[in-house]
């Protein structure tokens, strides 16, 4: 029969040792290298990260490129292997575990055009008919055709156009796209 005291001791000891090993030890090893660089992350990017988290993008898009030779991430042009400094210390982390859609660690370099992103966020099927990404129309504003003449509406295919109206990105869409464009491994990290 197990003695009660041994049982409690064993339960706590096995937990605490592993907890130290998998949470505190990584902190000791990783934090030093990550906290030193100063990132000067612009306001738009920080806000865009917040929208990215709020809409749950991470449930379909990972943000970690596996090393060359492990999977085909590199061959697909998704960039070099991710390093800890790529994440600009933005929290929560969004390394992700799913690729229903492609990896986004280097999306800013792969799709540098703002308009492409606005279109894809407003109606993904306007860009790729086979996409199963949800639309995010609440990040956009629908206004009359003649309103705000300085701004051109989204260049939507006919089937997604509303006659006499145009679609403009609002602040949150602009922040989110600024964040996506900042995901460019050319800028941060090592090569």
């Amino acid at each position: 029969m197990i003695r009660y005291s041994i049982l409690v001791f064993g339960i706590l000891a096995t937990f605490l040792i592993a907890m130290f090993g998998l949470t505190i030890l990584p902190k000791i090893f990783i934090d030093e290298g990550v906290t030193e660089p100063v990132y000067f992350t612009p306001f738009e990017v920080t806000e865009g990260h917040r929208v990215f988290v709020r809409e749950g993008c991470i449930y379909c898009h990972s943000k970690q490129v596996r090393p060359e030779g492990f999977g085909a991430d590199f061959e697909r042009g998704w960039g070099r292997a991710s390093v800890a400094t790529d994440y600009r210390n933005l929290l929560p982390h969004n390394l992700g575990t799913m690729r229903t859609g492609p990896d986004l660690a280097n999306i800013g370099a792969r799709q540098p055009g703002e308009d492409w992103h606005y279109l894809n966020l407003y109606q993904p099927r306007a860009i790729n008919e086979e996409s199963i990404m949800p639309p995010f129309p609440w990040l956009f504003e629908e206004v009359g055709e003649d309103a705000r003449p300085a701004h051109e509406g989204l260049n939507l295919p006919d089937e997604y156009r509303v006659p006499g109206r145009k679609i403009l990105p609002d602040d949150e869409a602009r922040y989110l796209v600024a964040y996506l464009l900042s995901l460019d491994q050319q800028i941060t990290g090592v090569d």
């Binding site: 339960i11 937990f15 907890m19 949470t23 902190k27 990550v34 933005l90």
Partner: peptide, 26 residues
């Protein structure tokens, strides 16, 4: 009943404040 409260409390500590460390805790 000993493990779950510990897990929940440790995961709520504000010490996992860099992305990759937080991913590990996650």
């Amino acid at each position: 009943f000993l493990w779950f409260p510990l897990l929940g409390l440790v995961s709520s500590l504000p010490i996992f404040d860099t992305p990759t460390v937080q991913a590990g805790m996650n």
